[in-house]
């Protein structure tokens, strides 16, 4: 079984992706070559932008099963509409009208159970794509990419994980920002979660929300501070008071922000930063023993 590490943060823009791709490189160089990066930020997947010489290994559509109502068999009894907790079925018996709003459907299957007249059939609706990229040196990145307009990011994240079939020693999940269901889905099977934060009031407040979440789902975690030196010291006081492991930190630098902007964060890692990533890798290796 692969050791699974999820990279999360409450606040967006704290450096999850920067951390995830660098951790991936550092694990690849210092621990095992059988490591796979998985971009679970399906609304805005960015991991790919930081690699060159990229090619597609495989690509598939991710689809949800949705109902289709056969109005020639339908008796307009409205039982399916009643069963649907997501208001995805609209039925007007007087007009012999029945339709499915596919972007509201959660594919729970309740309507299929409800219908006693064989009037509901399965069809599919695209929610996004799942792509396996070769990102050079036989390294692989699996990316979920939500179809613009689809609200089913959580379902896509689940499907991305279902497609991870190659045996690996380590999986790195790059999570979306926030603290709601897509984040829960991303961390659900993780063995360890790394929260990337920045030492600003927004960063710390959102970190606390995420810590609440991780404690609620009982996941082990540690914190990595990005852009250190930028704000104030509250984050360190909080970590100390709560007994949370500080895994490492990298200082804020405008030059680094500019390297990030160009997508050059993997090829141009300052020596001091590389050391911090190696420290985290050593910590994770120990956890996995």
């Amino acid at each position: 079984m692969a050791f699974k590490i999820a990279i999360a943060s409450g606040k967006g823009g704290t450096g999850k992706t920067t951390f995830a791709v660098n951790l991936f490189s550092s694990i690849n160089e210092n621990w095992t070559r059988k490591v796979q990066l998985v971009d679970c930020d399906v609304e805005e997947p960015n991991d790919l932008l930081f690699f060159r010489n990229v090619s597609v290994t495989s690509e598939k559509a991710s689809v949800q099963v949705i109902p289709e109502i056969d109005t020639s068999k339908c008796t307009f009894c409205k039982k399916c509409e009643e069963y649907c907790e997501f208001n995805a079925i609209v039925m007007m018996p007087t007009m012999q009208y029945a339709t499915v709003n596919k972007d509201l459907c959660h594919s729970c299957g309740a309507c299929f159970v409800a219908c006693q007249f064989d009037a509901i059939h399965e069809t599919t609706n695209a929610i996004g794509t799942i792509t396996d990229y070769n990102i050079g040196n036989d390294r692989s990145l699996m990316e979920g990419n939500l179809r613009v307009g689809s609200p089913l990011q959580t379902m896509l994240i689940k499907d991305v994980k279902r497609n991870l079939v190659v045996e690996n020693d380590v999986l790195i999940y790059d999570a979306p920002p926030g603290t709601s269901c897509p984040v829960v889905e991303t961390i659900s099977d993780a063995d360890f979660v790394i929260l990337v934060t920045e030492p600003t009031p927004f960063g710390v407040y959102d970190l606390k929300l995420t810590v609440d979440l991780l404690r609620e789902v009982d996941k082990p975690f540690g914190v990595f501070v990005n852009k250190a030196g930028l704000g104030d010291s509250e984050v360190y006081e909080y970590l100390k008071a709560e007994g949370i492991q500080l895994l490492g930190e990298i200082p804020f630098s405008k030059e680094y922000a500019s390297l990030y902007a160009k997508g050059k964060i993997v090829s141009c890692v300052p020596l001091q930063f590389a050391k911090e990533y190696r420290k985290v890798v050593a910590y994770l290796q120990k956890l996995n023993e």
Binding site: G12, G13, E43, E44, L146, L152, Q153, G178
Partner: peptide, 10 residues
Amino acid sequence: GPPGIGCAAI
């Protein structure tokens, strides 16, 4: 608004 393009952004 929220980040992203999913249900909360919509």
